[in-house]
């Protein structure tokens, strides 16, 4: 029993947080943020990645994965809809950045709102007709949407087809912080700021009306509808907010990578992000962050076994899911949906 409690990191963390008073909480939060901010300097330690540059790995996959996983968590974790086409919003953000960055004189920060707006628009357009579907039917439709976005981009001339778009401008410098290709610390800090904003947004929404509506929808959609929750409206909201985060991640990715091509936006990305969410602990922000960090970082860390690394990745997924089905850091018990046994709706 004691060992079990020791390993229950979620309760341990929550306990420390709940017992702390306000100044103590601020100290904990600030020092955690500073620690994360210092991560790019730890490149020489055991954290180093053998082949890829360590600070680049921290931005993509790790940082962007965390951001996207948080966005997807709004859809899958909070309101319980299975979205297998999340990469579409990422792609829309990235292509907005690429096209507007190369064709107009706008810089990354000016394009960001457009990228977010276009992804949200796509979210609404996809959500309105399809969010009436449930479960696996929704999954296949979103999956189809992700593939449609990729195929349209692949086969159109405005997107330069399979060649992709090159020479995407870097973000302009913020005061003394310069964005450079060979030193991506600043990118990492930008991602961290975006992650913090997303966390703040999710936490605020969770305790307000939309959060309660999502919770109700996830636990029992019919009951929620009967109790007067406008389910379609809040489902579209959750879908759209998730899309916004994905779009923002896409804009940043395009600007960081300087080059994008349709092959970067395959179904595998959607599946990987979904794996991050479920692996870490679906519905729990901190679990999702841990999951995305591990799954983003692991393949690069074990590059020395180059050929078998994806095999290891797959095996890790199977093993962890089998032994921790609720993820590494699951959400609190009372938040778990009531499992209706024997009723297949």
């Amino acid at each position: 029993m004691k060992i079990r409690n020791y390993w229950n990191l979620r309760d341990w963390g929550a306990g420390v947080w709940e017992q702390a008073d306000r100044p103590k909480r601020i100290v904990i939060a600030v020092s955690a943020i500073i620690l994360v901010g210092l991560l790019p300097f730890a490149g020489a330690s055991f954290l180093a990645t053998p082949i890829a540059a360590y600070d680049a790995v921290l931005v993509y996959p790790v940082g962007i994965f965390v951001l996207m996983a948080l966005g997807l968590n709004i859809v899958v974790g909070k309101s319980g809809m299975l979205d297998l086409g999340y990469v579409a919003f990422f792609a829309i953000g990235a292509y907005t950045m690429a096209l507007m960055g190369t064709l107009t004189g706008l810089n990354t920060w000016e394009i960001m709102p457009f990228g977010i707006a276009f992804s949200m628009l796509a979210g609404v357009l996809l959500g309105l007709p399809t969010l009436r579907l449930r479960g696996d039917y929704l999954a296949i439709v979103t999956l189809g949407f992700g593939e449609i976005v990729r195929l349209v981009v692949l086969n159109s001339t405005w997107s330069k087809g399979p060649n992709g778009i090159a020479n995407i401008p870097m973000p302009p410098d913020i005061g003394p912080l310069k964005f450079k290709l060979d030193d991506q610390k600043v990118f990492f800090w930008v991602v961290v700021v975006m992650i913090l904003l997303t966390i703040w947004m999710i936490r605020r929404l969770s305790v307000r009306r939309p959060g309660r509506a999502w919770e109700a929808i996830r636990q029992d959609e019919d009951a929620a509808e009967l109790m007067g929750v406008p389910t379609l409206k809040y489902k579209i909201w959750s879908f759209t907010l998730g899309a916004a985060v994905g779009g923002a991640a896409g804009v940043l990715y395009g600007s960081k990578n300087l080059f994008i091509a349709p092959e970067m936006f395959t179904l595998n990305v959607s599946i990987l992000i979904l794996s991050c969410v479920v692996f870490g602990g679906i519905g729990n922000i901190w679990g999702v962050i841990v999951g995305a960090t591990i799954l983003g970082y692991l393949p690069d860390r074990i590059r020395f076994i180059s050929d078998a690394r994806l095999l290891v990745f797959g095996t890790v997924l199977v093993v962890v899911m089998n032994f921790r089905p609720d993820g590494l850091l699951p959400r609190k018990k009372r938040e778990k949906a009531i499992v209706k046994k024997g009723v297949h709706a």
Partner: peptide, 16 residues
């Protein structure tokens, strides 16, 4: 357990 865990487990085995 929940269905998503099974889904991810299946995705893992298919990657493997």
């Amino acid at each position: 357990t929940n269905r998503l865990a099974t889904l991810i487990s299946a995705i893992g085995i298919s990657i493997a």
